[in-house]
Simulated assay, not measured.
Amino acid sequence: MTIQEFISRNGITEVLHFTTERGLTGCASAKLVLSRKALDEEQYLSHIATPVSTERKEAQDTFNKDENWLDYINMSISEINTHYFRSARNRYTCLDRWWCIMSFDPVILTHPGVYFTTTNNIYTGVSRATDLSGMLAMFNDRVTRWSGNVVARNGRPMHLATCEQAEVLYPNPLNMSFLQRVYVQDREQAASIHGTLVSLGFGQVNVTICPEKFSGVPNTF
């Protein structure tokens, strides 16, 4: 079986990445989604995009150094990582900005160098791999986050990874040509995003009002 066959068999139709409306504007302007490391280096995006975390454990000297994890784009399969989203949203509650979710064609999961993680990449129990075995591991019956914390599938739909915090780590950069949809929470946001996309050459991308998409599908214990 190939990754593409697994995608089709499990009904996976999208890979998601959430950002602020300013982040989306930056991505659409550059025609690329950039990693956190690249955002620090790209002066233009550093002014108009908002990194979703002010500090990252991956940058610490004690963290796994098999790869430069800050140079990967954190994404998820079918639903957002609500744990990470709540943290990002709470960090920027004082700012006048709102969030949207970019939905990409799942074909990007077949691209070279993509890592699949069974849970949050910073957890001690995480398993990472770049091939089909890595993707299959995301859908194991049980996944360990850290010692004493294990999540089970418990009837989760086939298109969802076992742990809601499982990540797709895409090597920088990701071409915006794979963008197929943007989720927003109300009509005003939809109109704003649609205008931005049209003005920057992405008029074919659907803008969908779907507030429930921002709730994800958390694990049940």
Score class of each variant (00 low, 15 high):
residue 1 M to K: 11
residue 2 T to W: 07
residue 2 T to D: 15
residue 4 Q to N: 11
residue 7 I to F: 10
residue 10 N to K: 15
residue 11 G to Q: 06
residue 14 E to Q: 15
residue 16 L to E: 08
residue 16 L to Y: 04
residue 18 F to R: 06
residue 18 F to G: 02
residue 22 R to N: 12
residue 23 G to I: 04
residue 23 G to V: 05
residue 23 G to F: 03
residue 24 L to A: 09
residue 25 T to D: 06
residue 26 G to T: 03
residue 28 A to S: 13
residue 28 A to D: 02
residue 29 S to C: 11
residue 31 K to P: 00
residue 33 V to C: 12
residue 36 R to S: 12
residue 37 K to T: 07
residue 39 L to Q: 13
residue 40 D to N: 11
residue 40 D to P: 00
residue 40 D to K: 14
residue 43 Q to N: 12
residue 43 Q to G: 07
residue 43 Q to P: 12
residue 44 Y to R: 09
residue 44 Y to N: 05
residue 47 H to F: 10
residue 47 H to Q: 14
residue 48 I to G: 00
residue 49 A to M: 11
residue 50 T to I: 07
residue 52 V to M: 14
residue 56 R to A: 09
residue 56 R to G: 00
residue 58 E to M: 07
residue 59 A to W: 08
residue 60 Q to S: 14
residue 61 D to W: 12
residue 62 T to M: 07
residue 63 F to A: 03
residue 64 N to Q: 06
residue 66 D to K: 14
residue 67 E to A: 14
residue 69 W to Y: 15
residue 71 D to A: 11
residue 73 I to N: 00
residue 75 M to A: 02
residue 76 S to W: 01
residue 76 S to M: 01
residue 78 S to M: 07
residue 78 S to W: 01
residue 78 S to E: 14
residue 79 E to I: 04
residue 79 E to Y: 10
residue 80 I to L: 12
residue 81 N to M: 10
residue 81 N to A: 10
residue 81 N to P: 09
residue 82 T to H: 09
residue 84 Y to M: 14
residue 85 F to M: 05
residue 86 R to C: 05
residue 89 R to G: 01
residue 91 R to A: 15
residue 96 D to H: 14
residue 97 R to I: 04
residue 99 W to C: 05
residue 101 I to N: 04
residue 103 S to R: 07
residue 106 P to G: 02
residue 111 H to P: 02
residue 111 H to R: 14
residue 111 H to S: 12
residue 111 H to Y: 13
residue 111 H to D: 12
residue 114 V to E: 08
residue 116 F to G: 03
residue 116 F to I: 07
residue 119 T to D: 06
residue 119 T to R: 08
residue 125 G to Q: 09
residue 128 R to L: 15
residue 129 A to K: 15
residue 129 A to I: 08
residue 130 T to Y: 05
residue 130 T to D: 12
residue 131 D to W: 10
residue 132 L to V: 13
residue 132 L to E: 12
residue 133 S to E: 15
residue 133 S to G: 12
residue 134 G to N: 09
residue 137 A to Q: 14
residue 137 A to T: 09
residue 137 A to Y: 09
residue 139 F to C: 13
residue 141 D to C: 07
residue 145 R to P: 01
residue 147 S to E: 15
residue 148 G to V: 01
residue 150 V to P: 04
residue 154 N to H: 11
residue 156 R to C: 03
residue 156 R to A: 06
residue 157 P to C: 08
residue 160 L to Q: 10
residue 162 T to I: 04
residue 163 C to P: 01
residue 163 C to T: 04
residue 168 V to L: 06
residue 168 V to N: 00
residue 169 L to M: 13
residue 171 P to C: 06
residue 172 N to R: 08
residue 176 M to C: 09
residue 179 L to S: 04
residue 179 L to H: 07
residue 180 Q to D: 06
residue 182 V to S: 06
residue 182 V to L: 08
residue 184 V to Y: 02
residue 190 A to W: 01
residue 191 A to W: 05
residue 193 I to W: 00
residue 194 H to W: 05
residue 195 G to L: 07
residue 196 T to A: 08
residue 196 T to I: 13
residue 197 L to F: 07
residue 198 V to R: 10
residue 199 S to A: 14
residue 200 L to E: 00
residue 200 L to H: 03
residue 203 G to M: 04
residue 205 V to S: 06
residue 206 N to A: 13
residue 210 C to H: 12
residue 211 P to E: 08
residue 213 K to C: 03
residue 216 G to V: 07
residue 216 G to K: 04
residue 217 V to D: 10
residue 217 V to K: 13
residue 221 F to Y: 15
